[in-house]
Design a protein around this nucleic acid. Structure first.
Lengths: 226, 226
DNA sequence: ACCTAAATTTAGGCTTGCCTAAAAATGGGT
DNA sequence: ACCCATTTTTAGGCAAGCCTAAATTTAGGT
């Protein structure tokens, strides 16, 4: 009950559609890198399961059932706990953790999950700033917003960065962008031009193109900076 | 290159035949819990691989090639490092580690292997006393012998115990038998009767049936006991 | 109402990894 | 030389997960 293919599909639905929206066939096909026809077949299987993983209406995509949601969050919890564990205990670098976690998330038991969560002190966020689902299925919340929407002339703190592209992570790492680091936006150049900003205490000004900026979320600084 | 089925088969060949002997079809069928006909098919595949994993002569079983041996030792190294890691870092009990390691051994990367080996201080033996193959393919050696062959009236130290039966491990654990613990053999009852022995500083005498005794290896005590 | 893009169905195929049952080959022991 | 147990072959099957290409349906916008 619950093959790797099923797990990956449930995870993809959650990531594409979140809690309430429906994930489309085309979206899933792209995310999972399989053909749309294969996705349709998989969705049928997931909704025919007893009990069903998803609620599926033809031509209207799929929404997770409570069971599907629970499973998706479990896999995501595995993934993010493993990422943090690799980073903190096994000294993996920021950009190495994702690939390894992708394999391990399907192989570990609930016991393993509990044990690493305990060793890490029941953490709420992974190395990239993503919230780690709790065992009860709730998600730690941290109000954040897109870097793209940041007001020029203001300060903010990096909240999270996308973990899908290791080369992007390497680049961010090399210029000091990590969750918790303070940034100052100088200006946004017109016509979707780059964002000019300073990172941490570094005086250098970095230009962030839209793709890079789009993979970063920020939150308001808690106290006035020194 | 190297599915889980292949890995398990190579590991089984190594465990049944060691370095030089050949593993038989029937033996592998039992070890892997698959039919003899399926084993024959698998052996053909392994020897047809390029480069081949095994040297296979019909009706004469299989012997690992250098490549097959290297792969088998790699999997066993994974397994035993993971067992020790679970025990020492994640606080798994003695009898829990085997099942979890069986799944994880196929999922971890060389990087993961290196990192846990480093965290553990490049250990040579797992929690059951089995040698952990080194990266270069050599095996730590520890001269030991079967408990069955121990001289009555003498002392020895537990060297290793079989890890295949969790209930047996629980039992051994409950009476204090672990690698490194000193035992004293009082007598061997006739006609394959039980071995009567004392464990550690415990004054109680335990009766070990042949199956239990057969799963334990011992080594001579290094210095005269106090 | 109609068009189109998305989704689905149909029909066929592939690989991996296992199964069965029955028949044939083989080799080691006496 | 012969028998028997082991091994192998043959022939067929199954399930999971994917693929393709072409045909069809559907929903949604105009």
């Amino acid at each position: 009950m619950g093959s790797e293919a099923i797990d990956n599909c449930l995870k993809a639905i959650f990531q594409l559609a979140g809690d309430n929206d429906r994930a489309t066939t085309a979206g899933l096909a792209e995310q999972l890198a399989i053909s749309p026809a294969s996705v349709t077949g998989m969705l049928k299987k997931l909704s025919d399961a007893d009990p069903p993983w998803i609620e599926y209406q033809k031509h209207h995509g799929a929404r997770l059932t409570d069971r599907g949601r629970a499973r998706a969050l479990e896999i995501i919890r595995h993934h993010r706990l493993i990422e943090l564990f690799l980073h903190r205990v096994l000294d993996y670098s920021w950009d190495e953790v994702h690939v390894e976690a992708e394999k391990l998330e399907h192989a570990i038991s609930e016991t393993f999950e509990d044990r690493i969560a305990h060793v890490l002190g029941d953490p709420e966020f992974d190395p990239h700033g993503h919230p780690i689902p709790r065992r009860d299925g709730t998600l730690p919340d941290r109000a954040d917003s897109d870097l793209i929407d940041m007001e020029p002339g203001t300060d903010a703190e990096v909240s999270r960065v996308s973990d899908h592209d290791p080369t992007m992570l390497q680049h961010l790492s090399s210029i000091g962008v990590r969750p918790g680091v303070r940034i100052h936006l100088l200006e946004r150049r017109p016509f979707d031009g780059p964002l000019m900003l300073r990172v941490g205490d570094d005086q250098a000004v970095h230009a962030f193109g839209t793709r890079l900026a789009g993979s970063i979320r920020i939150r308001d600084i808690r106290s006035a900076a020194a």
